[in-house]
Design a protein around this nucleic acid. Sequence first.
RNA 1: GGGUCGAUAGCUCAGUUAGGUUGAGCGCUCGGCUGAUAACCGGGAGGUCCGCGGUUCAAAUCCGUGUCGACCCA
Length: 1086
Amino acid sequence: MPDQYDPHALEERVREYWQEAEAYERTKQHREGAERFFFVDGPPYTSGAAHMGTTWNKSLKDTYIRYKRMCGYDVTDRPGYDMHGLPIETKVEEKLDFENKKDIEAFGMENFIEECKEFADEQLEGLQDDFKSFGVWMDWENPYKTVSPEYMEAAWWGFAQAHERGLVDRGKRSITQCPRCETAIAKNEVEYHEIESPSIYVSFSLTGREGSLVVWTTTPWTVPANTFVAVDEDATYAAVRVESTESGDYEGELLYVAADVVDDVMDRAGATDYTVEEELGGSELVGWSYEHPLPEEVPDHPQGAGAGEVYHADYVEMDRTGLVHSAPGHGQEDFERGDELGLDIFCPVGPDGVYTQQGGKYAGGFVREANDDIIADLDSAGHLLSASTTRHDYGQCWRCDTDIVFLATDQWFVTVTDVKEEMLENLEDSEWYPAEARDNRFRKFIEGSPDWNVSRQRYWGVPIPIWTPEESADSSASRSSERSSREDGEAVDGWSGDIEDTLVVATREELAERVDQDVDPEAVDLHRPTVDDLTITEDGTTYTRVPDVFDVWLDSSVASWGTLDYPGETEDFEELWPADLIMEAHDQTRGWFWSQLGMGTTAMGEIPYEQVLMHGWALAEDGRKMSKSIGNVVTPSEALERHGADPMRLFLLGVDPQGEDMRFSWDEMATMQRNLNILWNVFRFPLPYMRMDGFDPEEVSLENCDLELVDEWVLSRLATTVETMTDHWEAFRQDRALDALLEFVVEDVSRFYIQVVRERMWEESDSDSKTAAYATLYRVLEETTKLLAPFAPFAADEVYGTLTGDTGHPTVHMCDWPDPDSAYQDAELEADVAVLRAVEEAGANARQQAERKLRWPVPRVVVAANDSEAARAVREYAALVEERLNAREVDVVAPGEEWGELRYSAQADMSVLGPAFGGQAGEVMQALNAARISEPTLDALEIAVADELGEQVELTEEMVEFVTETPEGVAATPFRVRGDDRGVVYVDTAITEDIESEGYAREVIRRVQEMRKDLDLELDRELRLDLDVADERVSDLVRRHESLIAEEVRAEEFGSVEDGHRKEWEVEGVTMTIAIEPLAAPEQAD
RNA sequence: GGGUCGAUAGCUCAGUUAGGUUGAGCGCUCGGCUGAUAACCGGGAGGUCCGCGGUUCAAAUCCGUGUCGACCCA
């Protein structure tokens, strides 16, 4: 085992070993036939390298998979990749320098799709390499890909199930459209940024009465589609007579606006004098009619039944004019209200954001570019009261940053709103970590979520498996030549629009059976354009496929059965579904958590996952999200380069995985590397001794050993640690499990157990004590590698291999997760040793105050215990305390007993003082804390407090706690266990000749040891020692301990050394010359 | 603009459920130890508990409000 912990070199070795030993494959085989655990990997999107968040996510998945395997489960570990969708299309478009769909059509759809596939495949390879680079063990040979025929079939099948249940529909919806990509994009794909827009006040002339309604809008291009004006029926409106204006326009006109905003609107309109003639409720305005402001420019403007009237709507706000221009063809709220009112939905804009023929004068122009014309036309028609600009947030396409437009178009929907109650019920069947994520955030989102628009007018996706009667309309946009005929809302062709008259194909088999063409179900590629040309003829009607593809969220929503290749394969599905566990970040509440619930409920009537671990996002060191523009991005490869896989994983896995965002920290990662280094040293420490003594763990049974107190203690701590860790793992707090493990290794094993047993290991002859220490340490280390394995798979495996050699499993990852060994668990012993360690610490502190180093014995340590438990513990294990503190004697002063020289102070308990003294409590506390008394009684304290306070106060036992104070001449330090004061350690530092003698002898030993190391001697090499102490008195003192020295430094003989290693030392002001000479190495016994 | 979550030592976090003199690890610094030695032990410094206001004898904790950050929604 190398001296240094070098994560990179170690990883290299382990990686090679894994390869050679087929460690992963054997680990999986090892669990074959065991109870199965169905984990489903949420598929990362294949459009870039793994970032820190993905790395955290995969590290978590890996660690839980390893843990579950160790617990005996046969865990599914098929990784997945989300490979369809607009993001990849736009990347490929960029690469090919395309501007819009026409370029794609010119390039050829098939070629384009091939390019997308290649791109996605390349990205997939990159991601696989990234995940492997930090030790994730998943089935890399066999990932599920959303572009494979089996997987696409899973999507078809799920959709067909939803259709069977009557949960698929086509209909007009207001959607967010990217005019460049020419497709609907999901609401959660819309990003917001600030833009400058026109801000215009427009008057609509009332019909049948005098006056005009004043509306405000930032989108003049939606005015052609104006269908109604909305008011708040409970608000107050004013009829305002304009008396005079700066421009002379509108003078004498009567304008209607909300009463609260009269002054503001008049001001904007440049009115210098005006009168409010009448105030009336909003409900009085309802039913009024007005003229469309651009009747000549847009001859097809909405004018059917109910159009051009005033209605109430909930979305009206009183901030601008209180009257809202509403165009159901362009706004979501307008659409919903218009739909509710039964108005025609008029949308004179095509999928590319260009006005159609219905746009009249504006036809052929891009909507936002028509703003100026429309403003000018409104002005010349006398309808423009005011025109300026305003800054506000507006949505843009997440992929190409083009500002979106709102359009009402025909789209395909999974009508999840019809099964909302069922979804909420199904939700109850899943356990979430943290639980609040389900009950707050997710539940709220489900309650508010609309129908799921699953159609996209694009290419790189799963084709929607719907066939409609001959020449039927597709959802919307792809066949623009057909648009004009469809925009009247009438079906153009054979299809009535009734969903009952459509065919939905569920599988490749079914496709081959039903289509008119010859199709090989094994070989067919379900992508466009292959499926576009397939027709179905049934009962004399020919059906063609709608040209849309699925929203890419539908792809991943079927992962719980897609990953099992269902419906193509049924065996695993029947055994495993639904998933036992998924884990993703909190942004997936509206992503994968939701889409799976929606699809699971509509297709299967069930939630497709049982446990959810919802983690947070990986933020940068400054607490903000990692972003190229801020320049605070840390890549996983950089972390791997600087610290290696195990330290990086330890950092990531040491963070709370439940809902909280992680803050990246180089500092913490370095700390984890240091922790691993300690661990490394812990493992390395006993190996030379064990080897030297030929310790064979196979032959020595721990159970037959004569264990000493500390052995029993460390085994108890091990058992308790296992128990604690298991509890944390089961509660999905692997970070706390890791804390417990590191505390055990660093605090209990490294800092205490090993310090205590060093003496025993250094013993020359074989002894039961040494064997017991070896056996104990061996057990501790072996179990520890298992506990470490899920976190740091590389380091754990190398150490495990070194320890067990040929006797264990080929890899630690095949081991069973340890059971807490209750035979060794002893809570009282642990509590006792906690007291002893606290006493030792306090003793060390007291020694330092007295400037007495540990090498020099002290004649006596007095432990004044606050409670009988502490007193008993110290008394019982006094020998260990003597050894650790290098004391000749340990005395215990039990509670109730007094040690002569002590003085006392008191500490106030504010929870009692507060209520008793009210406003005076603070003062009384001060006085109490300041008091010094010679006996710990209330009477003495009351006198002292009265002195301080200038006033008599009544004290009770509950108010104070007496504390012993350091007496003169003896160094004293209180000791506490987990924050509780348990007593005081007094160290008597008197010097006697005897003590001096041993002190000096130990100084000599220490220096000889250092010289041995200078020569790099073998541990058991004997030597000759030549000792020359300048001070005669000291020389005599040292000689008294010659045999101790000889034993400790393995000095076979004392005598003059001619050409050995010679050094001069200054020890406490005395000059010593020491020389050593190694003797010939003894013959090896065997 | 709205909802949810978060802000405590230089860093990472605990303490907030149930109000009672703020804690840990790491880092820094001083000292000690020494056959684990790039390890180990002890001491010390280091806090407007994000700001402001309120309730209370008493607030990191409860209430209100603001600032900053994260996610989601518009």
